[in-house]
Protein backbone atom coordinates (compact mmCIF):
# COMPACT_ATOMS: atom_id res chain seq x y z
CA UNK A 1 0.00 0.00 0.00
CA UNK A 2 1.23 3.48 -0.86
CA UNK A 3 -0.97 5.33 1.62
CA UNK A 4 -2.00 3.82 4.94
CA UNK A 5 -4.10 5.82 7.38
CA UNK A 6 -5.14 4.41 10.76
CA UNK A 7 -7.36 6.16 13.29
CA UNK A 8 -6.13 9.57 12.18
CA UNK A 9 -7.62 12.53 14.06
CA UNK A 10 -7.11 16.25 14.08
CA UNK A 11 -8.55 18.70 16.57
CA UNK A 12 -8.06 22.43 15.98
CA UNK A 13 -7.83 24.85 18.86
CA UNK A 14 -9.21 28.33 18.38
CA UNK A 15 -10.55 31.20 20.41
CA UNK A 16 -14.07 32.49 20.72
CA UNK A 17 -14.43 35.99 19.32
CA UNK A 18 -17.65 37.77 20.15
CA UNK A 19 -18.64 40.72 17.94
CA UNK A 20 -18.31 44.33 19.10
CA UNK A 21 -15.56 46.59 20.36
CA UNK A 22 -16.11 45.79 24.06
CA UNK A 23 -15.92 42.08 23.38
CA UNK A 24 -12.64 42.75 21.58
CA UNK A 25 -11.31 44.72 24.56
CA UNK A 26 -12.40 41.94 26.93
CA UNK A 27 -10.70 39.47 24.61
CA UNK A 28 -7.37 41.17 25.31
CA UNK A 29 -7.57 39.86 28.88
CA UNK A 30 -9.51 36.65 28.60
CA UNK A 31 -10.25 34.43 25.66
CA UNK A 32 -12.31 31.28 25.69
CA UNK A 33 -10.55 28.43 24.01
CA UNK A 34 -12.67 26.24 21.75
CA UNK A 35 -11.94 22.94 20.06
CA UNK A 36 -13.09 21.67 16.70
CA UNK A 37 -12.66 18.01 15.81
CA UNK A 38 -11.98 18.30 12.09
CA UNK A 39 -11.02 14.67 11.47
CA UNK A 40 -12.19 11.81 13.69
CA UNK A 41 -10.27 8.55 13.69
CA UNK A 42 -10.41 7.90 9.98
CA UNK A 43 -8.76 4.86 8.41
CA UNK A 44 -8.19 3.93 4.79
CA UNK A 45 -5.58 2.52 2.44
CA UNK A 46 -4.70 3.47 -1.12
CA UNK A 47 -2.69 1.28 -3.47
CA UNK A 48 -0.15 2.19 -6.13
CA UNK A 49 -1.56 3.97 -9.15
CA UNK A 50 -5.04 4.43 -7.66
CA UNK A 51 -6.90 7.66 -8.31
CA UNK A 52 -9.23 8.17 -5.39
CA UNK A 53 -11.84 10.90 -5.01
CA UNK A 54 -12.22 12.42 -1.59
CA UNK A 55 -15.70 13.89 -1.32
CA UNK A 56 -17.47 15.86 1.32
CA UNK A 57 -19.18 19.16 2.01
CA UNK A 58 -17.25 22.24 3.15
CA UNK A 59 -15.61 21.70 6.53
CA UNK A 60 -15.93 17.91 6.32
CA UNK A 61 -12.20 17.37 6.90
CA UNK A 62 -11.00 16.64 3.35
CA UNK A 63 -8.34 19.32 3.16
CA UNK A 64 -7.22 18.72 6.75
CA UNK A 65 -6.63 15.06 5.88
CA UNK A 66 -4.69 16.04 2.77
CA UNK A 67 -2.59 18.47 4.79
CA UNK A 68 -1.75 15.80 7.36
CA UNK A 69 -0.73 13.40 4.60
CA UNK A 70 1.46 16.15 3.10
CA UNK A 71 3.12 16.74 6.47
CA UNK A 72 1.80 20.30 6.72
CA UNK A 73 -0.23 19.54 9.84
CA UNK A 74 0.55 17.38 12.83
CA UNK A 75 -2.35 15.07 13.72
CA UNK A 76 -3.81 15.04 17.21
CA UNK A 77 -3.68 11.24 17.22
CA UNK A 78 -3.44 8.28 14.90
CA UNK A 79 -0.99 7.03 12.35
CA UNK A 80 -0.30 7.50 8.68
CA UNK A 81 2.33 6.17 6.33
CA UNK A 82 2.83 7.44 2.81
CA UNK A 83 5.47 5.60 0.78
CA UNK A 84 6.67 4.16 4.09
CA UNK A 85 7.20 7.60 5.66
CA UNK A 86 5.36 9.34 8.46
CA UNK A 87 4.40 12.57 6.67
CA UNK A 88 4.61 15.00 9.59
CA UNK A 89 8.23 14.03 10.25
CA UNK A 90 8.83 16.12 7.12
CA UNK A 91 11.73 14.01 5.88
CA UNK A 92 13.28 15.28 2.67
CA UNK A 93 13.28 11.71 1.33
CA UNK A 94 9.47 11.76 1.52
CA UNK A 95 9.00 15.34 0.42
CA UNK A 96 10.88 14.59 -2.80
CA UNK A 97 8.38 11.86 -3.68
CA UNK A 98 5.07 13.63 -3.39
CA UNK A 99 3.48 16.80 -4.69
CA UNK A 100 0.60 18.92 -3.55
CA UNK A 101 -1.54 21.18 -5.71
CA UNK A 102 -4.13 23.42 -4.09
CA UNK A 103 -6.58 25.15 -6.38
CA UNK A 104 -6.97 28.21 -4.20
CA UNK A 105 -3.29 28.74 -3.39
CA UNK A 106 -0.25 29.33 -5.48
CA UNK A 107 3.42 28.61 -5.37
CA UNK A 108 4.34 30.53 -8.51
CA UNK A 109 5.93 33.97 -8.18
CA UNK A 110 3.30 36.49 -9.14
CA UNK A 111 5.53 39.07 -10.84
CA UNK A 112 7.63 36.64 -12.85
CA UNK A 113 7.08 34.16 -15.68
CA UNK A 114 6.26 30.67 -14.44
CA UNK A 115 9.53 29.40 -15.90
CA UNK A 116 11.47 31.06 -13.06
CA UNK A 117 9.42 29.17 -10.47
CA UNK A 118 10.01 25.94 -12.38
CA UNK A 119 13.77 26.52 -12.19
CA UNK A 120 13.47 27.26 -8.47
CA UNK A 121 11.68 23.94 -7.94
CA UNK A 122 14.31 22.20 -10.03
CA UNK A 123 16.95 23.40 -7.55
CA UNK A 124 14.82 22.64 -4.48
CA UNK A 125 14.02 19.10 -5.65
CA UNK A 126 17.54 18.62 -7.08
CA UNK A 127 16.27 17.52 -10.47
CA UNK A 128 19.21 16.90 -12.86
CA UNK A 129 19.32 19.20 -15.90
CA UNK A 130 18.54 16.50 -18.48
CA UNK A 131 15.63 15.13 -16.45
CA UNK A 132 14.28 18.64 -15.90
CA UNK A 133 14.34 19.36 -19.63
CA UNK A 134 12.63 16.06 -20.42
CA UNK A 135 9.91 16.39 -17.76
CA UNK A 136 9.30 20.03 -18.56
CA UNK A 137 8.95 19.39 -22.30
CA UNK A 138 6.56 16.51 -21.64
CA UNK A 139 4.36 18.53 -19.31
CA UNK A 140 4.42 21.65 -21.45
CA UNK A 141 3.35 19.65 -24.47
CA UNK A 142 0.63 17.78 -22.62
CA UNK A 143 -0.82 20.93 -21.13
CA UNK A 144 -0.17 23.02 -24.23
CA UNK A 145 1.43 25.95 -22.43
CA UNK A 146 4.52 26.59 -24.55
CA UNK A 147 3.35 30.09 -25.42
CA UNK A 148 2.81 31.24 -21.86
CA UNK A 149 6.06 30.12 -20.23
CA UNK A 150 7.54 33.59 -20.61
CA UNK A 151 4.45 35.52 -19.51
CA UNK A 152 4.20 36.99 -16.01
CA UNK A 153 2.01 34.79 -13.82
CA UNK A 154 -0.19 37.74 -12.89
CA UNK A 155 -1.09 38.14 -16.58
CA UNK A 156 -2.28 34.54 -16.97
CA UNK A 157 -5.87 33.37 -16.82
CA UNK A 158 -6.89 31.16 -13.91
CA UNK A 159 -6.89 28.10 -16.16
CA UNK A 160 -3.42 28.88 -17.52
CA UNK A 161 -2.15 29.50 -13.99
CA UNK A 162 -3.48 26.17 -12.79
CA UNK A 163 -1.72 24.41 -15.66
CA UNK A 164 1.52 26.10 -14.63
CA UNK A 165 0.90 25.13 -10.98
CA UNK A 166 0.59 21.53 -12.12
CA UNK A 167 3.87 21.72 -14.04
CA UNK A 168 5.64 23.23 -11.01
CA UNK A 169 4.32 20.41 -8.84
CA UNK A 170 5.15 17.57 -11.22
CA UNK A 171 8.62 18.48 -12.44
CA UNK A 172 10.23 16.08 -9.98
CA UNK A 173 7.96 13.19 -11.04
CA UNK A 174 6.26 12.54 -7.70
CA UNK A 175 4.97 9.07 -6.90
CA UNK A 176 2.06 10.50 -4.93
CA UNK A 177 -0.01 13.51 -5.89
CA UNK A 178 -2.47 15.30 -3.61
CA UNK A 179 -4.90 17.47 -5.56
CA UNK A 180 -7.06 19.80 -3.52
CA UNK A 181 -9.81 21.35 -5.64
CA UNK A 182 -7.61 21.67 -8.76
CA UNK A 183 -10.50 22.83 -10.95
CA UNK A 184 -12.10 25.30 -8.58
CA UNK A 185 -13.17 28.51 -10.28
CA UNK A 186 -12.27 27.29 -13.77
CA UNK A 187 -14.65 27.43 -16.72
CA UNK A 188 -15.96 24.11 -18.08
CA UNK A 189 -13.38 23.92 -20.88
CA UNK A 190 -10.48 24.55 -18.52
CA UNK A 191 -11.93 22.04 -16.06
CA UNK A 192 -12.04 19.41 -18.77
CA UNK A 193 -8.47 20.16 -19.84
CA UNK A 194 -7.23 19.68 -16.30
CA UNK A 195 -9.28 16.49 -15.90
CA UNK A 196 -7.94 15.04 -19.14
CA UNK A 197 -4.42 15.84 -18.06
CA UNK A 198 -4.83 14.23 -14.61
CA UNK A 199 -6.35 11.12 -16.18
CA UNK A 200 -3.52 10.85 -18.71
CA UNK A 201 -0.82 11.52 -16.11
CA UNK A 202 -2.22 8.90 -13.74
CA UNK A 203 -2.43 6.31 -16.50
CA UNK A 204 1.01 6.93 -17.96
CA UNK A 205 3.00 7.35 -14.75
CA UNK A 206 1.07 5.11 -12.32
CA UNK A 207 1.07 8.03 -9.93
CA UNK A 208 -1.12 7.52 -6.87
CA UNK A 209 -3.55 10.43 -6.72
CA UNK A 210 -5.90 11.58 -3.98
CA UNK A 211 -8.28 14.21 -5.29
CA UNK A 212 -10.73 16.45 -3.54
CA UNK A 213 -13.22 18.38 -5.62
CA UNK A 214 -16.56 20.07 -5.36
CA UNK A 215 -17.23 19.32 -9.00
CA UNK A 216 -18.86 15.93 -9.39
CA UNK A 217 -17.77 15.88 -13.03
CA UNK A 218 -14.17 15.65 -11.81
CA UNK A 219 -14.93 12.67 -9.63
CA UNK A 220 -17.19 10.94 -12.16
CA UNK A 221 -14.61 11.37 -14.89
CA UNK A 222 -11.52 10.42 -12.95
CA UNK A 223 -12.22 8.21 -9.95
CA UNK A 224 -13.25 4.58 -9.73
CA UNK A 225 -13.09 4.76 -5.98
CA UNK A 226 -14.42 7.45 -3.70
CA UNK A 227 -14.08 8.16 -0.02
CA UNK A 228 -16.95 10.21 1.35
CA UNK A 229 -16.27 12.15 4.50
CA UNK A 230 -18.65 14.22 6.55
CA UNK A 231 -18.08 15.95 9.85
CA UNK A 232 -14.63 14.35 10.08
CA UNK A 233 -15.86 10.77 9.67
CA UNK A 234 -15.71 8.46 6.68
CA UNK A 235 -19.22 7.57 5.53
CA UNK A 236 -18.34 5.59 2.45
CA UNK A 237 -15.18 4.12 1.00
CA UNK A 238 -15.55 2.08 -2.12
CA UNK A 239 -16.44 1.85 -5.77
CA UNK A 240 -18.19 4.85 -7.26
CA UNK A 241 -20.43 2.67 -9.45
CA UNK A 242 -21.51 0.61 -6.44
CA UNK A 243 -22.22 3.81 -4.55
CA UNK A 244 -24.55 4.92 -7.31
CA UNK A 245 -26.18 1.51 -7.55
CA UNK A 246 -26.69 1.39 -3.82
CA UNK A 247 -27.92 4.90 -3.20
CA UNK A 248 -29.50 5.57 -6.54
CA UNK A 249 -31.27 2.30 -7.40
CA UNK A 250 -32.89 4.02 -10.32
CA UNK A 251 -32.05 5.54 -13.68
CA UNK A 252 -33.32 8.59 -15.43
CA UNK A 253 -35.24 8.60 -18.70
CA UNK A 254 -35.11 11.87 -20.57
CA UNK A 255 -37.90 11.92 -23.15
CA UNK A 256 -38.57 14.49 -25.82
CA UNK A 257 -41.98 14.47 -27.54
CA UNK A 258 -42.88 15.64 -31.04
CA UNK A 259 -45.91 17.42 -29.61
CA UNK A 260 -47.26 18.28 -26.17
CA UNK A 261 -48.44 15.44 -23.94
CA UNK A 262 -50.38 15.34 -20.68
CA UNK A 263 -48.69 14.39 -17.46
CA UNK A 264 -51.29 11.71 -16.90
CA UNK A 265 -50.17 10.03 -20.15
CA UNK A 266 -46.77 9.20 -18.81
CA UNK A 267 -46.87 8.97 -15.02
CA UNK A 268 -47.80 5.29 -15.28
CA UNK A 269 -44.27 4.58 -16.56
CA UNK A 270 -42.42 5.95 -13.55
CA UNK A 271 -41.96 8.85 -11.17
CA UNK A 272 -42.14 12.16 -13.02
CA UNK A 273 -39.22 14.30 -11.85
CA UNK A 274 -39.61 17.17 -14.30
CA UNK A 275 -42.49 17.94 -16.58
CA UNK A 276 -42.84 20.30 -19.48
CA UNK A 277 -45.44 19.46 -22.14
CA UNK A 278 -42.70 18.54 -24.69
CA UNK A 279 -39.97 17.31 -22.31
CA UNK A 280 -40.23 14.88 -19.44
CA UNK A 281 -37.74 13.40 -17.02
CA UNK A 282 -38.80 10.12 -15.46
CA UNK A 283 -37.21 8.15 -12.64
CA UNK A 284 -37.48 4.38 -12.99
CA UNK A 285 -36.03 1.32 -11.28
CA UNK A 286 -32.50 0.59 -12.50
CA UNK A 287 -33.38 -2.97 -13.61
CA UNK A 288 -36.55 -1.92 -15.37
CA UNK A 289 -35.11 1.05 -17.25
CA UNK A 290 -34.67 -0.70 -20.62
CA UNK A 291 -38.11 -2.30 -20.52
CA UNK A 292 -39.81 0.94 -19.58
CA UNK A 293 -38.04 2.73 -22.44
CA UNK A 294 -39.19 -0.01 -24.81
CA UNK A 295 -42.78 0.31 -23.50
CA UNK A 296 -42.78 4.05 -24.02
CA UNK A 297 -41.46 3.71 -27.57
CA UNK A 298 -44.07 1.07 -28.45
CA UNK A 299 -46.90 3.09 -26.91
CA UNK A 300 -48.91 5.61 -28.91
CA UNK A 301 -47.07 8.51 -27.35
CA UNK A 302 -45.40 10.88 -29.92
CA UNK A 303 -41.81 10.16 -28.81
CA UNK A 304 -39.12 12.06 -30.68
CA UNK A 305 -36.11 10.99 -28.57
CA UNK A 306 -35.44 8.98 -25.44
CA UNK A 307 -32.26 8.81 -23.39
CA UNK A 308 -31.44 6.45 -20.51
CA UNK A 309 -29.07 8.19 -18.16
CA UNK A 310 -27.42 7.65 -14.77
CA UNK A 311 -28.65 9.84 -11.98
CA UNK A 312 -26.49 12.88 -11.29
CA UNK A 313 -23.79 11.77 -8.84
CA UNK A 314 -24.05 15.06 -6.98
CA UNK A 315 -27.67 14.13 -6.19
CA UNK A 316 -26.48 10.83 -4.78
CA UNK A 317 -23.90 12.46 -2.58
CA UNK A 318 -26.35 15.16 -1.53
CA UNK A 319 -28.80 12.44 -0.59
CA UNK A 320 -26.16 10.69 1.52
CA UNK A 321 -25.28 13.92 3.31
CA UNK A 322 -28.89 14.85 3.88
CA UNK A 323 -29.56 11.41 5.38
CA UNK A 324 -26.84 12.06 7.91
CA UNK A 325 -24.33 9.58 9.20
CA UNK A 326 -25.37 6.00 8.76
CA UNK A 327 -23.04 3.10 9.41
CA UNK A 328 -24.72 1.07 6.73
CA UNK A 329 -23.13 3.43 4.21
CA UNK A 330 -19.73 1.86 4.69
CA UNK A 331 -18.85 -0.22 1.67
Amino acid sequence: MIIQVKNLSKTYEYYKKAPGIWASVAGLFHREKLYKKAVKEISFEIGEGELVGFLGPNGAGKTTTLKMLSGILYPTSGEAKVLGHTPWKREAAYQKQFALVMGQKNQLWWDLPAMESFILNKEIYEVPDAEFEKNLNELVELLDIKDILDVQVRKLSLGQRMKCELVAALLHKPKVLFLDEPTIGLDVVAQKNIRDFVKHYNRENKTTILLTSHYMEDVKDLCKRVIIIEDGEIMYDGDLVKLIEKYAPYKVLKITFERDVEKSDIDRFGEVMEFEPGNVILRVDREKAKNVAREILSSDLPVDDILIDEVDISDVVRKIFSNGKDNSLKA
Binding site: K67, S70, G71, I72, Q95, L100, K105, Q107, I124, Y125
Partner: peptide
Amino acid sequence: RQGNFDYTISKPL
Protein backbone atom coordinates in the same frame (compact mmCIF):
# COMPACT_ATOMS: atom_id res chain seq x y z
CA ARG B 1 -2.82 34.09 5.63
CA GLN B 2 -3.30 32.96 2.04
CA GLY B 3 -2.07 29.47 2.87
CA ASN B 4 0.85 29.61 0.44
CA PHE B 5 3.20 28.79 3.30
CA ASP B 6 1.76 25.26 3.06
CA TYR B 7 3.78 24.87 -0.11
CA THR B 8 6.95 26.06 1.60
CA ILE B 9 6.53 23.61 4.45
CA SER B 10 6.01 20.67 2.11
CA LYS B 11 9.23 21.19 0.17
CA PRO B 12 12.43 19.19 0.76
CA LEU B 13 14.33 22.18 2.08
